[in-house]
Design a protein around this nucleic acid. Structure first.
Length: 428
RNA sequence: GGAUGGGUGGCCGAGUGGUCGAAGGCGGCAGUCUUGAAAACUGCUGAUGUCGGAAGGCAUCCGGGGGUUCGAAUCCCUCCCCAUCCGCCA
């Protein structure tokens, strides 16, 4: 959520930003309604003040008849106040409906454009895409060769989009988790394993919409719980409604969770294999920072992602996400796209991680603030999230990049210790 | 799933229907004392909105929502959440 006062004072900027992001929201109407709402608020406050004053006079009145007269006046004032307040609440609800459509502001350096075509490549990994002397297989084929992923069994028990990891794929998942957590631990992150479910108000605070036709969220029937789509939800909700001390900041968490996504409307879109699935495991980074530190923290998260993938020897590029592709909460977002040799005709970049600076947009909705000692009032913290490793996508990159002509797969050196071998598919 | 007890300011914790934004404590800030610090003592110290140049004023906020009343942290209803115990269970 943006600050209403800010919107009123920067109408043109907000409108331009909406346009850059491809969002339609009636900002003019919001401005009108907000002005009306404020007037109603003042009216209600004034009536309430008079009513309070009247109530105090009742005790002092001696004559019973006079007392009754004052009571009547008090009742009348309360009624008027209630009416003004009801109108205020109606306006407020309408304003909120518009407000929730308005996305965060955008970083001035973020490329402006309608979609991912406008993303700007800003960086490459240490390893360039390898030249294959043969036609590389895609991860589905490789997984089948080595019995690493059982799609059929997954569909059998849970439907399309679910799968069993098997054999070395399991070891790779565990190794990737350990690899990512260890690195972040050394960087001062507090490691957590978060709940895989969260309440609806937490989802909404972080910016996820658990209802509606286009929802990505699985909800638990007869409860207020939802399966999380990312640990960003649970980590972001940790301090909802709290006022933190400025000295506590920044807080850096890393969270391991399962991620569940309905992928509504994504049918047929790069749906082969485990690129887009209903469940996967992810190690997530999350930070609560002071406003002046969020830009630098985004760079740090991006650097950490690069270190993680450089360490796995996976080729990748980093793109600065265009305004039209930022989503609602992000002020700036970097995507790390790994080279996936089995995608498309001759390989394609595929998003493996993503990191966003959400500034105070999530915090305002979540009510996560901080207080600077000796200063009056509170401020909203800034929140940032970033993928350390999304296991399913990392698996694709590993299988496809490290395959040999006979289909054998070399396990990245960084993971060999945990997997317990250096190759998959070597004939004994 | 059953039983009970709770949800009050940054934190802990009192609170008779009006004098309660709310005792007390902790924490924080300032001062006294001290070479300095600690301790001790004294004073100050909630958030949000709104008006005002400022000083300050006003309104709201005691889990959420509804009700009773001229007036509710306090009484009633309802929902949510949290804790403990029992049962079941990895």
């Amino acid at each position: 959520m943006l600050d209403r006062k800010f919107i009123l004072e920067n109408v043109a900027q907000v409108k331009q930003n909406n346009a850059n992001r491809g969002v339609t929201a009636d900002v003019d109407r919001l401005v009108t309604l907000e002005q009306q709402r404020r007037a109603k608020r003042q009216e209600a406050d004034e009536l309430n003040r008079q009513a309070n004053e009247t109530s105090k006079r009742i005790g002092k009145a001696k004559d019973p008849a006079e007392k009754e007269a004052i009571k009547d006046e008090g009742r009348r004032l309360r009624e008027q106040k209630d009416a003004a307040e009801a109108e205020h609440d109606r306006l407020d609800a309408e304003i909120f409906d518009i407000l929730r459509l308005i996305p965060n502001l955008s970083h001035p350096d973020a490329p402006v454009g309608p979609g991912e075509e406008a993303n700007r490549e800003i960086r490459r990994g240490r390893h360039e895409p390898r030249k294959f002397g043969f036609k590389p297989r895609d991860h589905v084929e490789l997984a089948e060769m080595h019995d690493l992923i059982d799609f059929e069994a997954g569909a059998h028990v849970a439907g399309h989009g679910f799968y069993f990891l098997k054999n070395e794929a399991v070891l790779l998942e565990l190794a990737l988790q350990k690899y990512a957590v260890d690195l972040l631990l050394a960087e001062g992150f507090t490691p957590t394993i978060t709940p895989d479910l969260a309440r609806t108000d937490v989802l909404q605070g972080v910016g996820f919409i658990p209802r509606g036709p286009e929802t990505q969220i699985y909800s638990i029937e007869n409860s207020d719980l939802n399966l999380v789509a990312t640990a960003e939800i649970t980590l972001g909700g940790m301090h909802a409604g709290k006022v933190l001390d400025a000295e506590q900041l920044p807080l850096h968490y890393c969270g391991v969770s399962h991620c569940f996504r309905t992928e509504a409307g994504a049918a047929g879109r790069a749906s082969r294999g485990i690129y887009r699935v209903h469940q996967f495991t992810k190690v997530e980074m999350f930070a609560f920072t002071r406003p002046e530190h969020s830009d630098a923290t985004l760079e740090r998260f991006c650097d950490l992602q690069c270190r993680l993938f450089d360490g796995l020897e996976i080729p990748y590029r980093v793109v600065d996400t265009a305004t039209g592709d930022l989503g609602g909460s992000a002020y700036r977002k970097y995507d790390l796209e790994a080279w996936m040799p089995g995608r498309g005709d001759a390989g394609e970049w595929g998003e493996v991680t993503s990191t966003s600076n959400c500034t105070d947009y999530q915090a305002r909705r979540l009510g996560t603030r901080f207080k600077q000692k000796g200063e009056k009032g509170t401020q909203f913290v800034h929140t940032l999230n970033g993928t350390a490793v999304a296991i399913s996508r990392a698996l694709i990159a590993i299988l496809e990049n490290f395959q040999d002509e006979d289909g054998a797969i070399t396990i990245p050196g960084a993971l060999q210790g945990w997997v317990g071998k250096d190759r998959i598919g070597v004939k004994m």
